[in-house]
């Protein structure tokens, strides 16, 4: 019990510390209505680490992604650049709309899938494995081209049914704990546990988590959360992971893309 109280005190101190530091400009920049980016839950040190392009460890992945963007690979002898040109202009704003309904595939796809579809179809190259250095690097590079732009995934039209599925996936109790994503990352702050848990948005992903000591995708984070909830890992075959990704992206609609963000 003593430990719990001590933990709560430290968590409260942390929250106060972080809130006190976040000046008005930062609060405005990283808020949209009632939405507050995870950035505002970070300590000043973690915020500084994210803000400085060089100190941000995710910068290495973005640079690597830039190299991969223009490096030819696969049977067609093409690079991303062969079709898409200069990423700074052609990719600007693109990532704010992902996951996105793809009419040709008649399904919802995320950026990682989009990259691998291009690799297989246009480049005749092998897809990059999930959470591989290459896939994280390219995803971070592409999303970084939208840095500062508001997230804006579509949740209507052909995306509406996926969004509804994603909302259900977020709110449905799971596993032994009977918890849902919303239990911790709900709209009601009272639901939160002792930790300084943010609101469940993906505008900063892929993110460099200090606990991971590496960059990781939002789906990796899902895995961590589900494990904590003592729930089964998500099977992407059911596409539940991607609809959930859409839902948390939509929760961040209006918040700026921070990729690569730095989180605890």
């Amino acid at each position: 019990m003593k430990r719990l109280i001590a933990g709560a005190a430290v968590a409260a101190a942390l929250l106060f510390h972080g809130a006190a530091h976040a000046d008005d400009a930062n609060r405005a920049k990283y808020s949209a209505g009632d939405k507050r980016s995870g950035y505002l839950y970070s300590t000043p040190d973690t915020q500084t680490m994210q803000d400085d392009d060089f100190q941000n460890p995710g910068g290495a992945w973005v640079e690597e992604g830039g190299r991969l963007w223009s490096t030819a690979d696969g049977g067609a002898g093409k690079s991303c650049q062969s079709c898409h040109g200069a990423a700074a202009s052609t990719m600007k704003g693109i990532a704010t709309g992902y996951p996105k309904f793809n009419p040709r595939l008649a399904k919802l796809i995320d950026i990682e899938q989009r990259i691998n579809i291009c690799r297989q179809r246009a480049m005749q190259a092998k897809p990059f494995p999930a959470e591989s250095r290459e896939l994280l690097a390219l995803t971070a590079f592409i999303k970084n081209q939208s840095h500062g732009l508001p997230m804006n995934v579509a949740v209507d039209g052909p995306a509406a049914s996926f969004f509804a599925e994603g909302k259900d996936a977020y709110e449905r109790p799971r596993g032994q704990s009977g918890m849902s994503c919303a239990s911790c990352h709900g709209d009601n702050e009272g639901h939160r546990q002792l930790d300084t848990v943010s609101q469940g948005q993906s505008n900063g992903f892929p993110t460099y988590r200090l606990s991971w000591e590496t960059l990781g995708s939002v789906q990796r984070q899902f895995g961590i959360c589900l494990k904590s909830m003592k729930a089964e890992a998500l099977s992407p075959d059911t596409e539940e992971a991607v609809v959930l990704e859409l839902y948390v992206a939509a929760r961040g609609n209006g918040l700026p893309v921070e990729t690569p963000s730095v989180r605890k």
Binding site: F54, G59, A60, W61, E63, E64, R133
Partner: peptide
Amino acid sequence: AEMKPRVKV
């Protein structure tokens, strides 16, 4: 160390 080291000078 798969990625290039970065230096700022």
